[in-house]
Structures are given as structure tokens and as C-alpha cells.
Write a protein that binds this DNA or RNA. Structure first.
Lengths: 218, 218
DNA sequence: ACCTGAACACCGTTCAAGT
DNA sequence: ACCTGAACACCGTTCAAGT
């Protein structure tokens, strides 16, 4: 038989299928939230038997890990790096929050995930480069990285369901009923009912970056 | 028929059963993680048909909401309040992190949950009281509350699976393989492999509290 | 008011088998 | 190397019915 078709390199077809699987998973999560991301649902969307996916992923959690990392590919690094490390750090974290908000129900999974994928590593590298320019070394730099990630991801996780949820007026009504004996909450009912905003995110982020700047010049 | 037994007040039996349901849910989550908290699992543990639980909760998410809030009952408020608001705030957030760490897999759910239960309200009230002593008013106080909650809960959510996961030596080996082209990550491989600690948590918390103190005296 | 049996439409995963 | 049919042990939820 003449080799009219290029022979598949080992793993090539699997590589293609893997991207297709992730695209299907992304689509399901966008349309139906985390609950929509099931082995059977992804398989259905690909027109394939459910157990086919076990040729590509050890189990469901491995599929979800790959899905999460694939989303981070869309975060753009600040390029070219400006003269001001703290402004670049601010922009990188803001951009991360912005991207995460597009995938509301997945955000908490990013926080808990202990082993970063290739895209998470790329973002970690960029953040550490900025912290090095700030003058942070060793454990200090790693501490700052962790604190920033926790804050940016955590804020998005907190914010997303509130944006999607009940309107402030409704939330306010509910809060007033529940806070009869809680004077501070009661006094701030309308501020508390308001959805969290980018302004609040940015305020906290500046506090952290100030703290980091202080740690760099002790 | 003589009333030899006190008549049940309306809802009384439901009240008792509800605490029993939550105790069963807590036990399951402690022994088997979030995945163990199922309608059918809780019912099994109570020796009751699965659909019985729908007499007490509208659906599974309502059960989980009640479970989460019931855990917060264990957070102790700093009493009596000391002379130093920032020290009290520090202690309240540290105590919250400590408690959350005992329920590793549930922590991300706290972040995303948009409507606080009675125990969450109690903690929010205490935090706002401290922020009022710091001199924060209105939206500023609410911003500070949100930033603090995001950080304390987010840090615990980040920390818990890492503590439970692979030992630092193993993590370090894995990291070295994955960071061949990422010089900053590579240089800090051993610091990054180390589990996050209370020290890191406290450092970030002090940054935030400093920022809050600055906002109070502009 | 609280509880149940039976059923429905789903899950993740495994095994043996096909190409 | 990749895919499948069939099966197993689970899910959440609903409905009609019982006390």
C-alpha cells in the first residue's frame, strides 16, 4: 500500500482530540455552568461514547483540571513591561479578575487546585518577574505571589455569583428582615446590598501592593 | 383523651429533625468530603427515605447552605473587645481561617455563597463593629469587610488542599520538571513547593489591615 | 405535618471486545 | 491507539399515597 497519506505521528490524533474535548467542555461550562460539565455531557456533544474520554483523561477530575488551565490561555501578559512594576502588577491582577469573571462557577476551583497547569505556570512566572523587579527575593516573593493570587481569584469567586444573583433592591429587602438585632449591618443595609464592584477590588489590590512595596524596602 | 404529653408547638419537631439532618451532613462531610454530602447519603445515615429530606429543605442546595452556616457557629468572637481594633480584627480573621481549615473541601463554597445565613451575619456584624471603631463609615466599611472576607476565606481555600496534598519534596520534583523555561519559578522551586503557612496568611492580613487603617485617616 | 415506595432521568467508571 | 456496548452502583427529584 503506497503511503499517500502522511502517517500520524504518535499521539498526534490524541492531541487533536484533546483540544476538541476541551473545547466541548468549555462550551458546556459556558452554557450550563459547572453542573453541565459531565463526562457524559462532553461525550454527547462530541458524538462519542462516554467511556471514550477515558482514553484521554484518567478520570473526571483530570478533565476538569485541563479545562481550567485551558481557560487561562486567554489572560494576556502586560507587554511590553512598563517602567513601573507596581502598575504592571496591578494590571496583571485586574486582567486576571476580568477573565475569571467570564467563567463564574469555575472560579472557586482555581483557588483550590493544588497543581498548576502550563498556563497557570506562565502567569506565575510573569508575576514573579514583576515581584523580582520590586526587589523581593526568596520566600518573600513567594508569599507575595500567594497573597496576590488568593486575593484576585478569591475576589472574583466572591463577586461572580453576586453579580448574577438577585438585584440589589431585592437583596436589601431580605437583609433588612434578617438584621433586626444587628445594628451595624442594619445601618449599612443598602451598601451591603449593592453588588461588589471593580472599585472595591482595586482598593484592596492597592493595599496589598503597598504592603508588598513596603516589604521590598524594609 | 387527657393531654399527658405536651403538645408539639408548630414546627417544633421539624426544628429538632433539622438539627439532626445538619449533624448528619456535617458528619458525612468530615468523613468523606463534599462528595459525601448527598441527599441519599444523609437520609441513609438518618435511617430515613431520601425524599423525606424534602420536607425540610427545598432542594440539595438549601441543605448545603444550612450546613455551611451551621459550621460558622463554632467561630468565637473576640470577647471582651480589646483596646486595639486592629488587633481584634487580626484575631477574628485568624480564628475564621483556623476554623475553616477544619472543613477543607467546603471552603470554596463559603466564598461563592451570595446569601449569608444567621451565623455569617453574626460574624459580619462583629467585623463591622470593629471597622466602625477604626473610623470607617458607609461604603468604605463595606469595602473593607468584603476585602477581608475574600482574603481570609480565599487563603483558607487555597491552603487547605495543599496541606492535605503531596509532601513538599514530591511537589518540588514535579515543579522542577515543569519549569524548564521559566527561570523565576525554577529559581524559587523549593519555596514554591513548601506548603502555605500561617505566617504567609498573617503577612497578607497585616498588609490589608494597614491599608484599612490608612483609609480611616486619609 | 411528616414520611414512604416506586419511578424517572441522570451520573462516573469498569470490563471485555472490536478496529 | 482509539473507540464501543453493556453493565454496575450510584445520584437528585417528583408523584401519589399513607399516618
Amino acid at each position: 500500500v503506497p503511503r499517500t497519506h502522511r502517517r500520524r505521528a504518535p499521539g498526534e490524533r490524541a492531541g487533536l482530540a484533546l483540544e476538541a474535548v476541551l473545547a466541548a467542555a468549555r462550551a458546556l461550562s459556558a452554557r450550563q455552568g459547572v453542573a453541565g460539565v459531565t463526562i457524559r455531557g462532553v461525550a454527547r456533544r462530541l458524538g462519542v461514547a462516554p467511556n471514550t474520554l477515558y482514553s484521554h483523561f484518567a478520570d473526571k477530575s483530570a478533565l476538569v483540571e485541563a479545562l481550567l488551565d485551558s481557560l487561562l490561555a486567554a489572560v494576556e501578559l502586560p507587554a511590553p513591561p512598563g517602567k513601573n512594576w507596581s502598575e504592571d502588577l496591578f494590571r496583571l491582577m485586574s486582567e486576571s479578575r476580568r477573565l475569571l469573571l467570564a467563567h463564574a462557577e469555575l472560579i472557586p476551583l482555581f483557588l483550590a487546585r493544588p497543581t498548576p497547569g502550563p498556563n497557570a505556570l506562565r502567569l506565575g512566572e510573569a508575576t514573579l518577574a514583576l515581584l523580582a523587579r520590586a526587589g523581593l527575593r526568596g520566600q518573600e516573593a513567594v508569599d507575595a505571589l500567594q497573597v496576590l493570587l488568593v486575593y484576585a481569584i478569591g475576589f472574583a469567586a466572591h463577586e461572580a455569583p453576586r453579580r448574577a444573583g438577585a438585584a440589589p433592591a431585592r437583596r436589601r429587602a431580605r437583609a433588612e428582615a434578617a438584621t433586626r438585632d444587628l445594628p451595624h449591618l442594619r445601618a449599612l443595609a443598602s451598601e451591603l446590598a449593592r453588588h461588589p464592584t471593580q472599585d472595591t477590588f482595586e482598593r484592596g489590590l492597592r493595599w496589598l501592593i503597598q504592603g508588598i512595596a513596603g516589604a521590598a524596602h524594609p
